[in-house]
Structure formats: C-alpha cells, structure tokens
Simulated assay, not measured.
Amino acid sequence: MNYLLIEQADFRNQLKPFTFTRPIAEIRVGILTIREKWEKHLDGSLSHISTPTLSEKYPTKTEAQNILINSSVCPNPELVKAIQLGASLKKDGVLISAAATEEEIGFFDPKQKLEEAAEYDGDINLITQSWHIFQKNADEIRSDFELITAGRNTQHVNDPHTSVYGEKNIFIEEGASIKASILNAENGPIYIGKNAQIHEGAIIKGPFAMLDNSHVNMGAKIKGDSTIGPFCKVGGEVSNSVFFGYSSKGHDGFIGNSVVGEWCNLGADTNTSNLKNNYANVKLWDYAKGGFKDTGLQFCGLMMGDHSKCGINTMFNTGTVVGVSANIFGSGFPRNFIPSFAWGGAAGFSTFQVKKAFEVAQKVMERRDKTLDEVEQKILTEHFQESKLDRIWEKE
C-alpha cells in the first residue's frame, strides 16, 4: 500500500510560521519529524500532498491504491495497526486516514471522507497549533525513544568525569562525545545522536534528544522536555524548547517553551520571556486571523521561522512570533509579532529584500556544506510576495 501525508488547511495556517517553508509532516516534535515517525512505523517512505509552493521540493508519489494520513497526527502502534487495515478513521471530528484511488486524490473531498470514516477510540497526539510542538515534545521524545532504540545496543559513557543518573534511559549513538557533564534520565529518556558532542560542564535533564552532529556547549543547562535537531549548537539555559535543525544558540541566555526553525541564529545573551508578569494566558499571533489568539497557556516563549536571526542581547517578550528570514537587533523589546523579511527592532522595521536574504542564507548554509538551490530560492521568493500584507510599513 502507498501512504501519503495530506494536510488540513486550517491546521496548516495554525502552524505558521513553520509551514511557510515545509509541509506539516516535516515538523520535528520529539526526536523525529512527523514523516519520519510514520516511516519508521510503516517501514517505508512516505510523500506529501502539500501546497503548490512546496510541491517541487516535496513531490507527491501516488499509486493505484493509496492511504491518505493526516499530517498533524503522530503515530502510535495501535493507530498504525488500525490504519494498515485500510479503513477510513476519524477522531473527534478530525479525519485521521482515508483510502483513495489515484483518480480520487485529484478530487479528494475531506468532508465526504469524514462522514464515511469510522470513529477511532484510541488516543492520538495531534499537532495542530504552533505551541503543540513544545507542549507535546516530552511525550513524543518518550514515544520516539522506544521506537528507534528497541532491540539496539547503546554506546556507553566512558568519560570518568561524567555523572550519569538513570543510565538505562540513556541511548548514545556511535561517534558521540560526552565530557565532564551531568546526564539525568531519571524523569525521562536522553537520546544522543551520531557524532553529537556534549561539552564540559553541561547539565542535561531528560526527556531530552539531540540529533546527529549537534553540540551542547560548555556549561549549558538543559532543563528537559527539549529537542536539539541535527547540526545545531546550543548553549546557555534551555527549557522545554525545540530546535528543528541547523540552528544556533551558542551563548548564554534563556530560551523556554519555544520553537526555533532551521538556519536560525540567536545572538549572545538573547533571552525569551515565557511567563507574563501578571501570570495571564499568553496570546500568539494568528496568521489566519491577522490578530492575536489566546493559547490557553501560562508559559509560552518564542516561535521563530526558518532563516531568521537576532543580534546580541535581544529581548523577546512573552509569546513572540517571528516569521521567515527576519533580522532583529537593537535595544529594547521588539514587537511580539515580527513579519517575515523584517529588518530592525524596537525602533522600527524596514524590509529585508529577498536578494539580500539569499546572500545571507547562502553563506550560512555553506558552513554546513549545503547550498541555497533554485528550489529553495523559489520557496522564499514566493513567501516574500505573500507576506507583504504582514509588513505594514510597506503600505505607508
């Protein structure tokens, strides 16, 4: 059977700014992306049905018979077994999966499929809001840990100056290096990817995951429920936050209850507030609404889209949303919604023109032996055009 990951439009809007540059299923939550989770469970590759802007980078592969899976649904063993039987499933008004022929995919009617679907009585983890990425990260680390370490042998901590607690909950891949650190996995697992490095004086509490070739810098304090994607460098204090990959927070400063996309950089002593002084619920910018939305959360920090950067000593207010390819600098608190391709800070913004954004992105990606190819440039160019309405200074 051919499996495809299909998106629900309202969920896609709610997951911006991260879905400006990727399908929903390419979001990392836990150790793996949602797509990687499904591929591990189903033992095969999956493709996406996403927006036209992303179709060249993420092509759709169909066959005569297909099972469509909602991209916002994280798999578990019981759900996977039910889907493999080929039945259409729903949960609390959300379509989980549906069978479709190749011809039907072009005329797919979610409402009709929802009416036909059987109610699934098991539990599911849905990623439908941007804050769900950090909110459900601990559960997904535990789930992914069991999935990818089952039946495998871990490398061991050989450094005599590293203290380990809850050793049975720690899995270390080949090539990883850990020196003079503290690893505490008593409250949740710790996963260390291939060639990852934990430097001297770092303190890490599980649940925690760091992917291949990433670094936790000297003296870092990782409080748990956090994920550091591949090729990241992270230091300072981190709590319940997710770095998708290829991003850096190399110096001191606090980030909590936050999500950072790819190719981002947080300058030295950047701090995020994750709690309002009056302890009220945090509101986040809602792209579909064009205004702020109550998250229902008391703790919520920074949502930063791909390729965005901030200078030293940047102070982000509680519940700040930063779009794609923004550059924030200067003293004071910048506004808590910063549109894509914004250049500036508390004193005001101008437009970071797309050609300049390409120049920076190319230099940053070359440091990881990657290139900003024509497909990536096309995605950013189309987003630059569609995000003009958010940059209010361009209307003046």
Results as ranks from 00 to 15, higher is better:
S340N: 01
N217L: 15
S325Q: 12
A99P: 12
T351R: 08
A196C: 10
G344R: 05
I141S: 05
S340E: 01
E103I: 13
N274V: 07
E376S: 13
S241W: 13
I6H: 03
Q84S: 10
H199M: 14
N2K: 15
D373S: 06
L46H: 08
F384P: 02
I255D: 00
I198N: 08
K168C: 04
D139H: 12
A118T: 14
F208S: 01
D225W: 12
G311N: 09
C74A: 12
Q362P: 00
H48T: 10
N187Y: 10
V364A: 11
G301E: 00
K194S: 11
G193M: 04
N265A: 09
F11N: 14
N217I: 12
F329T: 01
A342I: 00
E396M: 12
S258N: 02
H215A: 04
K249H: 00
M218D: 09
A25W: 07
T351Y: 00
G86C: 02
L54P: 05
Q14F: 10
M365W: 05
V80T: 12
I198V: 14
S308G: 02
P52F: 07
K57Y: 06
D294I: 06
V322M: 03
I96C: 02
G345R: 06
K309L: 11
V354Q: 01
K233A: 10
G323Y: 10
S177R: 15
T128M: 10
K40L: 10
E186P: 01
M1Q: 10
I228K: 00
L380Q: 02
C264S: 12
D373V: 06
K37L: 01
N70Q: 10
I190V: 11
D109V: 02
A25D: 08
L89C: 07
F352I: 08
I141N: 05
K293E: 13
W38E: 05
K113Y: 09
M218R: 13
R367Q: 14
F134S: 05
T314F: 09
E146W: 11
Y246D: 06
F18E: 02
E382L: 13
